[in-house]
């Protein structure tokens, strides 16, 4: 394939993927109360933020946002710690333990989620945790997804084992070695894990649907899902909701895109 064709493919792909996104953002700026547009409108003639104001009147955005921030604020650091510790430990434990843990992590990626629902429901029910934010944060205890542990393991493995040995000989504990020698060298992967955790917890609708239904624990996805009932004449409000939900996740992607999108990529991994 020639150089020009490669660039052309990229341009086409960008347009195909970015055009709908642009239409959604500009669509959210259309003034409310106008009839639905009868054609594709790249930019509304008279852009306004009225749809966002209307959104704030329809759903308690402040409350939803606060709950979402509490969940991500706890779940993201928790995921980081759990995944990073586990990944770090796995690089230095015995071969058999390592193989077992890594094998388990990969097997767990193949367990369908419905397999967990009923028992988790009963667990939360017995512990009196239904309709609290705990079921939304809990997945972070298991590193949110085994993938984050695998990523952390991969990053720590790149650091020469001699560094661990040196630290150990100097009498450093495992925790100190992780904190002072390991962690500073895997910043890019740490950011990537944070991004993965954020994307999951920010958009987590399913766990809320299953275990936390009520008003004061509703998060942003739960509150905004109700707007699916709105009609074509309120389309700008629906777009505004989609933008509000998607923007933080996409910003997260942009901030870490060099590292997240490259952690599986040898060249970029060298940055760790």
């Amino acid at each position: 394939m020639t150089r020009g064709a490669g660039t052309a493919v990229r341009v086409v792909l960008l347009v195909v993927l970015l055009l709908p996104a642009a239409l959604i953002v500009t669509g959210s700026l259309r003034r409310l109360g106008l009839p639905a547009p009868s054609g594709l409108e790249l930019l509304p003639a008279d852009p306004s933020l009225s749809s966002y104001r209307d959104l704030a009147q329809r759903v308690p955005v402040g409350l939803l946002l606060r709950n979402s921030l509490v969940v991500t604020g706890i779940a993201v650091p928790l995921t980081l710690l759990v995944a990073s510790w586990a990944g770090f430990a796995l690089t230095q434990l015995g071969e058999r333990q390592r193989r077992f843990a890594l094998g388990a992590a990969i097997t767990l990626l193949l367990v369908p989620l419905p397999m967990l629902w009923v028992a988790r429901f009963v667990l939360y029910l017995r512990l009196g945790l239904l309709d609290t934010l705990v079921p939304l944060i809990a997945p972070a205890l298991a590193a949110t997804t085994p993938f984050t542990v695998l990523l952390a393991y991969r990053a720590f493995r790149r650091i020469p084992a001699t560094q661990w040995e040196a630290a150990r000989l100097e009498g450093a504990s495992a925790w100190q070695t992780w904190r002072r020698i390991g962690l500073p060298q895997v910043k890019a992967t740490t950011t990537a894990i944070a991004a993965i955790a954020f994307v999951f917890h920010w958009g987590n609708y399913l766990d809320a649907l299953l275990y936390a239904q009520y008003e004061d624990v509703r998060t942003l996805p739960v509150g905004l899902a109700e707007l699916i009932e709105l009609d074509a004449s309120d389309q700008p409000v629906v777009f505004a909701a989609a933008v509000l939900l998607a923007l933080p996740a996409l910003l997260g992607l942009l901030v870490v895109q060099r590292t997240l999108l490259s952690t599986t990529d040898r060249a970029a991994a060298d940055m760790d």
């Binding site: 990229r10 792909l13 960008l14 993927l17 970015l18 996104a21 994307v199 920010w202 958009g203 609708y205 399913l206 996805p221 905004l224 899902a225 909701a241 989609a242 939900l245 998607a246 996740a249 996409l250 997260g252 992607l253 942009l254 895109q257 999108l261």
Partner: peptide, 15 residues
Amino acid sequence: TRAAAYAPSVVPDVA
């Protein structure tokens, strides 16, 4: 391009 191809995967289900 990579970011654009990956973007739909990070958008929340509800959106």
